[in-house]
Amino acid sequence: PEAADLRALSRHLYEAYLKYFPLTKAKARAILSGKTGDNAPFVIHDMKSLMEGEQFINCKQLPNQEHQPQTSHSGMDAVELRFFQSCQSRSAEAVREVTEFAKSIPGFIDLDLNDQVTLLKYGVIEVLIIMMAPLMNKDGTLISYGQIFMTREFLKSLRKPFCQMMEPKFEFSVKFNVLELDDSDMALFLAVIILSGDRPGLMNVKPIEQLQETVLHSLELQLKLNHPDSLQLFAKLLQKMTDLRQIVTDHVHLIQLLKKTEIDMCLHPLLQEIMKDLY
């Protein structure tokens, strides 16, 4: 009966994952391997294709962007900023998706509300970085719900510090993708990350650790059944959590640097909330 409960938990989290995350790994891999026929993504590989591709990119206006002087947003120098702003909008939307997913983890909404906030504050960027991995290969990444493929070389060619933002994620993703997790494995792994009992400022750690332990058991069983030939996959996956924390720390420092150096940049209020006093 215990194993049956763990399988039920795995199914539940997989269903929630499918419900809240529009671009699954299965779909992303189909796009990346050219199995979607006529629906091949638009490729952005230089400034010209970036400008052509901008119409595809979800570029909702940021709430406080309308008060920015428009003159400073023209010209080639502003392309990076404009692209960065649309990345922010998508990230804020993704935070909402992750929050809904977190709320679907059994027991999460019964935790102390302050602790729910802390778990999301510290977990959400880690989750977003893990979720980038299925969208990436060594040559580039899908963006904009899979409508666009942006090359790694193009991202590296942006001016500093924008060119430094994605390269660590590519390095991590290429290694992470070797593990060949599928969407049902990912759902459990994301829940494990969210339920980390060592986040700073948690008030009631015990119930969080208890929830995480159950999800960890479910993940271990899932990996044994789903990847019977992949030795030590569970241990290898847990080791990724250490690398992930370093990537998030570096990412947050880079954003803080951007905030100081890019006078025209406005950070989305939700992302600002998350990154304030984070690391």
């Binding site: 909702k60 909008s89 935070v95 906030v117 909330e273």
Partner: peptide, 21 residues
């Protein structure tokens, strides 16, 4: 903590309609 994280808090509390981001 809730005061400093109003949007996150709102996202957590809002069970149906997504907050206008």
């Amino acid at each position: 903590l809730k005061e400093k994280h109003k949007i996150l808090h709102q996202l957590l509390q809002n069970s149906t309609s997504p907050v206008d981001l």
